[in-house]
Design a protein around this nucleic acid. Structure first.
Lengths: 324, 324
DNA sequence: AACGAAAATGGTAACGCTATCATTCTTGTT
DNA sequence: AACAAGAATGATAGCGTTACCATTTTCGTT
């Protein structure tokens, strides 16, 4: 493997000039630069990342924390990771997907997602100690943690708006049974839609469930036993899946007898029946934005960004105009 | 950040002894080892990977080549990557997903997938030059390339067997229009099933298609125009999706009028109707096996392994007993 | 107690790169 | 032609680890 020394000898310059051709080409006279570049090509020179990292005190690795509760095999997670990967690999960074917080490891920065408030605080302290920047998919008030989140409030309100526009008034919500920002915000969006449309916020219409298909299934059974709802807004697509199964088991046809909207945009609904109407999070874009933000921070940009991106309503066929 | 020197001073030993505690603990007297370990904990010492890599001439990075033609967002790809990630991160290796072959980059080894025969040859030459091991998801006769592949022959024959057992005799196949090992093998498996069941291999029953839903759609229209088939074996689930749409557009009910089997196991068919009967590849396991094999090779094991893993038939409801 | 072999430990030089400061070469101005 | 100021280049040290060889310690044997 050719080193800078080899290139330097071949081009009859010093190693440091070769280094400059790579890192600050403007500082090298065009003629010298050309000669060096020719020799680099001829020798098939590739810089040794380990050496570079050693001297610049970097590892070249970004830790991506995704808790085990998030299924990596769903397209939602994958798009996110692909977005990150796209940006990082261009900058010769590589990344490690870590599944639990105890797996501590030296890296240049963290992309974290899906953690609870106090977990983020822990992380923040740990990262501050090591002077490593953090970016977060989500939201926190902690300084020097750049965040990007989907606007869960407007997202949820779009979903419920859609139902209201179809004539629904008795709209229930199945929320996720966890104290996270997104659950609070989606609930707020649910309320907002009623308010925006000049409707009273219904009582006894929100029920909590564990975020899996079973949770959605059972919540729906409970929900439809007591009150008569014509539509359900599910805080996640996974819950919506369970809701649809439960409704069918109760003999209801979807969307004729019951409209259902989800949230997330799991994708791959190719042969699904019904295709769930859902609020899609642009996770690919969020992943790449977070990676860019993190690299900026690593390179010394002291910006503090708390950004919300707007999701999009994907109309499927799990919703219909209410029957009179 | 604490270095070995700090630990050495604190424990009143030399740096090299600290190094030995980490890399060859047996060579250090228990009392010394204990003292060093205590100090490592107290100082929160983590070895500097860059320095380790520099001196041991490694990069700590594995390049994973997945051609752009493979959609990273499908669960199939994701399980594969997760399998790789699981193994590598335990050994403090990290990985880069590369999407085209021109993106050449120094690494400790390659995991490659989805390449054509001559592309593998190219790769092989390049990797040999750099003395970097390769493992392949697929098959090749090249020495020192360890391969793991799904047994596409038995997989395809399982699928067709299943149809034959349901009473089907006029079984068509839609194969992928590419000259890859898996297409050849799945075709061979199709033939094998007839032979195993003592049936004659039908003529004019195999048609090629581009590997996407449109390809499957159009191939099915062509197929059903001429001959009367009661079942179709699709070489991929993606083609099967298109086939189902085409059949429906021709007014056929599935599985009543036409049985369809796919191959791959894309997953996430939660609300799908029908759920495609398919041959599932254990991609997670293949990913982790490949990663382990590669690490073994990097550590000097000169083993040559060409292994086939057996896929599994997942029964959905896109197949039914033939109507008389 | 003296000796030798084996175990345990240490000193020093790399690994390939960049930072820092020093030196040489250009160029424009008087 | 002389000079200053800036551009271009170079010499050297050091990043944190391991490899190699040298030295010291330990322990059983005579």
């Amino acid at each position: 493997m050719a080193t800078m020394k080899d290139v330097a000898e071949a081009a009859k310059v010093s190693v440091i000039t070769v280094s400059r051709v790579i890192n600050m080409p403007d500082k090298v006279k065009p003629a010298t630069r050309y000669k060096v570049e020719q020799e680099m090509k001829a020798l098939g020179f590739t810089p040794n990342i380990a050496a570079k990292n050693l001297v610049s005190r970097r590892t070249g690795i970004i830790d991506v924390y995704i808790p085990e509760s998030i299924d990596l095999s769903n397209p939602f997670a994958m798009h996110f990771i692909t977005g990150i990967s796209e940006v990082l690999s261009k900058q010769m960074y590589s990344f490690l997907i870590l599944r639990n917080r105890t797996h501590k490891h030296l890296c240049d920065g963290y992309i974290i997602t899906g953690l609870l408030k106090d977990e983020i605080d822990d992380f923040y302290r740990y990262a501050l100690e090591n002077k490593r920047p953090i970016v977060l998919f989500g939201h926190t008030e902690l300084l020097s943690v750049n965040c990007i989140d989907v606007n869960n409030v407007t997202g949820a309100s779009m979903a419920v708006d859609h139902l209201i526009n179809l004539g629904h008034k008795k709209i229930a919500m199945i929320n996720v049974d966890e104290d996270k920002d997104y659950t609070i915000d989606r609930l707020a969006g649910y309320h907002k839609a009623f308010k925006d449309n000049g409707l009273p916020i219904p009582g006894n219409s929100v029920i909590n469930a564990i975020n899996n298909t079973n949770g959605g299934y059972e919540a729906t059974l409970r929900l439809l036993k007591e009150e008569k709802f014509s539509a359900i807004f599910c805080a996640t697509d996974t819950i919506a899946l369970g809701a649809i199964r439960a409704a069918r088991d109760l003999g209801k046809e979807i969307p004729k007898d019951l409209s259902i909207v989800g949230f997330d945009g799991l994708g791959h609904q190719l042969l699904a029946n019904p295709v769930i109407t859902t609020v899609q999070q642009p996770v690919f874009r969020i992943g790449s934005m977070l990676a860019e933000l993190l690299l900026d921070q690593i390179n010394g940009d002291e910006c503090s960004i708390k950004k919300l991106v707007e999701p999009e309503l994907l109309d499927g066929n799990s919703t219909a105009v209410i029957r009179e």
